[in-house]
């Protein structure tokens, strides 16, 4: 173990990331907030374009901000015998999970939490989303919301294991579960290039835990909005922000895991991390309208009979390469 740790250190023996004071966590959350706004505006523009309406500030681009203002003034809807505690915990949990995810993502040289098992930490936080989304569905004491919660868990059972094994591939290649080490291990060739299956499955997993695009049936119109059927006002705003925040956190985590971290010409490391994050985030937002919904009742088989074996073969190849290299 000690040997593999040493071999994954950069040649000059300098640790790849510096831990900054915990107070910078506020800065990280601010960056996450900015990414959320960018993603929401982009989605608004794409929405307006597909609907053929105006794209400007008065139209698509301004839609998310207008929607936020509307929700902040909206009176909170109440339901009979709601489990308010669990409902609120669920609604607020998505943002918290996303913030805890980005805490281990290095922004160039700096990171807030240089956890030695950062990859597993990210995984634990995305599992937290299972609980949070189901609780949001449960809390309202509403049939449609609960059906949505079950739909999400059905999707979760399908996407989570492939996602876990997709995260394993970069960790094997880097010989470390530390996010900074994984980023530093990609000198020259990005992991996305030589482990494309893991990268693709990872992106699908990000869409999964953000209840996004193909995984949106948990919020489907056929069940009156599903998990968020009874969410209103600030609660709904928080839930939607949480989805975008998870999407942004997933995009940010893809950068050190698959896209070489802060590596790139001319610009400093932090700028490259942000640029790559924005690129992945835009791809995810754009893909929302391009991919068909995955049915919760049939996705399980797709996940376990197609994605899981594919990503396991990917892991095997990566492991063989890692052994052959050492």
């Amino acid at each position: 173990m000690g040997e593999s740790l040493e071999s994954s250190l950069p040649r000059d023996g300098v640790l790849p990331v510096v831990t900054v004071a915990p107070g910078w966590g506020i800065g990280v959350v601010a960056v996450l907030g900015a990414l959320v706004i960018v993603a929401a505006v982009l989605d608004g523009v794409l929405c307006a374009r597909s609907a053929g309406s105006s794209l400007g500030v008065g139209g698509g681009a301004g839609r998310p901000l207008g929607e936020a203002a509307r929700l902040m003034r909206q009176r909170r809807r109440t339901t009979v015998q709601a489990d308010t505690l669990l409902w609120r915990v669920g609604g607020a949990g998505l943002v918290v999970a996303a913030a805890l995810m980005v805490a281990v993502v290095p922004l160039g040289r700096w990171t807030v939490a240089d956890l030695d098992v950062g990859v597993v930490w990210f995984n634990a936080m995305d599992v937290m989303v299972w609980a949070v989304v189901w609780l949001t569905g449960w809390g309202a004491n509403s049939t449609h919301a609960l059906v949505g919660g079950y739909r999400f868990l059905a999707h979760g059972l399908g996407y989570e294991l492939p996602l876990m094994f997709a995260l394993v591939a970069p960790a094997i290649a880097a010989g470390s579960l530390n996010v900074g080490m994984v980023a530093a291990a990609q000198d020259g060739v990005w992991f996305a290039v030589w482990m494309p299956v893991a990268f693709a499955v990872y992106l699908l997993g990000v869409a999964g835990f953000s209840v996004w695009g193909p995984f949106a049936p948990a919020l489907g119109v056929d069940i009156a909005g599903g998990v968020r059927a009874e969410l209103s006002g600030v609660d709904r705003l928080l839930f939607e922000t949480g989805r975008y925040a998870l999407l942004a956190a997933g995009a940010a985590f893809a950068v050190p895991m698959f896209l070489g971290g802060g590596a790139g010409p001319v610009l400093p490391g932090w700028a490259w991390v942000l640029l790559k994050t924005l690129a992945v985030l835009s791809l995810l937002v754009w893909a929302r309208r391009k991919l068909p919904a995955l049915r919760p009742d049939t996705f399980m088989e797709l996940g376990w009979l197609v994605l899981l074996p594919a990503v396991l073969v990917q892991d095997l190849l990566v492991a063989v390469v890692a052994v052959w290299r050492s």
Binding site: V127, M128, E160
Partner: peptide, 15 residues
């Protein structure tokens, strides 16, 4: 590792 895996497994299990 053990700590994070406890959180991961138990939250999933409870869900």
């Amino acid at each position: 590792y053990v700590g994070v895996v406890i959180i991961l497994m138990m939250v999933m299990e409870m869900a």
